[in-house]
Amino acid sequence: MSSAKEVIVIGAGIIGASIVWHLTKAGARVTVISDSGAGGVATPNSFAWINASWGNPEIYFRLRIRAMAEWKRLANELPGLPLAWCGGLCWDLPADRLEAYAAEHACWGYGIERVDAGRAAQIEPNLVEPPEFAVYVAEEGVAEPVAAAKALLAHAERQGARVLSSSVTALVQTDGRIAGVDTSHGLMPAEEVVIAAGVGAPDIAATAGIKLPIETPPGLIVHSQPYKKLLNGLVHAEKLHMRQTAEGRIIAGSDFAGSDPGENPDATARELFAAMKAADGFPIIGRAEGTEGLYVAVMHSGITLAPAVGLFATREILDGERDPLLTPYGLGRFAQ
């Protein structure tokens, strides 16, 4: 890999942090720019579930499975990364749909166990009413998302990356390519700019005439005060999804969160935010076609995908090697 490429990464959430860490490790000169601090906006409000579950076509399932493996690789390379492979107990679909999901994903090799009320009570002894039928995936896990992003950025900074607290006002174009960014601290040149700015990505891309077709619906997720140990892993019940953090806080919601819930949080609490949901529901990862020097990495499932995206983006940015698992997720699939 190149040892000298100058790269600016916009965004310090889990995706940006992973890209910064992988680029720095590969020898690039990296500056990360964020106006919201380590962890960004969506990452602190994520349910932080690492999984390959639910409603995925097989091609996306394969990317998520690879990402789960990359989390384990990353944890080996950066000891102390706050991860827990705690398993997930799920019964948030009608029984026939839950069975269909289990059959499909088991066929793909996902480690799904069908459980009855007795087994569910063994997995989560504090459930008041264990489900009569659920599925359990022991290999699923969680990350403490802000702590993980901070750990990646701190290690990258020790290896030479620069962390700059600033806002990016525009992408700078020279001779038909992106040559840097304009910030509240002035112009900053770069050979490549990576947009990993979550909900702020569309406005930044628009300064270069690039449309990112993403949706950012409002949402709300609840964090309790610390409690004694109540949950062993992830619980996805009919009306509520829950997990317990390392410090004992219960994180709960009816889906997964990420942005400001708006003026009426009670009304939006059940519309929990998809951190970066594209118009077709899948990630946008890759270079912007027709615009040299710009790489885009925005997505829902950022927690799950982060280590794989960081690895794949680094290889593509420095060596021009695009991983086949990213083939469906380029920006070129949308008409600009």
Rank of each mutant, 00 (worst) to 15 (best):
I251R: 01
G290D: 06
L294R: 01
H223F: 15
G233M: 04
A237H: 12
A274G: 11
L234M: 03
D266E: 05
L230D: 11
L294G: 06
K277N: 06
M242H: 06
T216S: 14
G200W: 03
G186S: 03
E289V: 12
P261T: 05
V222L: 08
L294P: 05
A237T: 09
T245N: 12
K229W: 04
A201F: 02
P261D: 02
K239F: 11
A257D: 03
A246G: 11
K229V: 08
A269H: 02
A196C: 13
R270P: 12
L272I: 13
I250M: 00
D255N: 15
S184T: 15
G200C: 07
L240I: 14
A252L: 09
Q225F: 12
K228H: 12
Q244V: 05
P213L: 05
R287I: 15
P202K: 02
P218F: 06
A274H: 12
E191S: 01
P265S: 11
D255M: 09
A206I: 05
N264G: 14
R243A: 06
S184C: 03
A197T: 00
T268V: 14
G198C: 08
K277H: 03
P202Q: 12
I285F: 13
P202V: 01
S259T: 09
S184M: 09
G286Y: 02
E263C: 13
P218V: 11
H223Y: 15
G200P: 00
D280I: 10
I221G: 13
A257H: 01
A274Q: 08
P189L: 05
D260E: 04
T268R: 14
S184R: 06
L294E: 00
F282D: 07
S254F: 03
D203K: 10
A206D: 15
A252C: 12
A237F: 02
S224H: 03
I210E: 10
L230T: 05
M276R: 02
A279K: 14
D203F: 08
G209E: 10
L220W: 07
G186H: 03
I204E: 05
D255C: 14
G253I: 00
A267W: 02
H223C: 11
A196H: 04
R287W: 15
D255S: 09
A237K: 06
E192R: 06
S184L: 04
P202W: 04
P217G: 05
T245A: 11
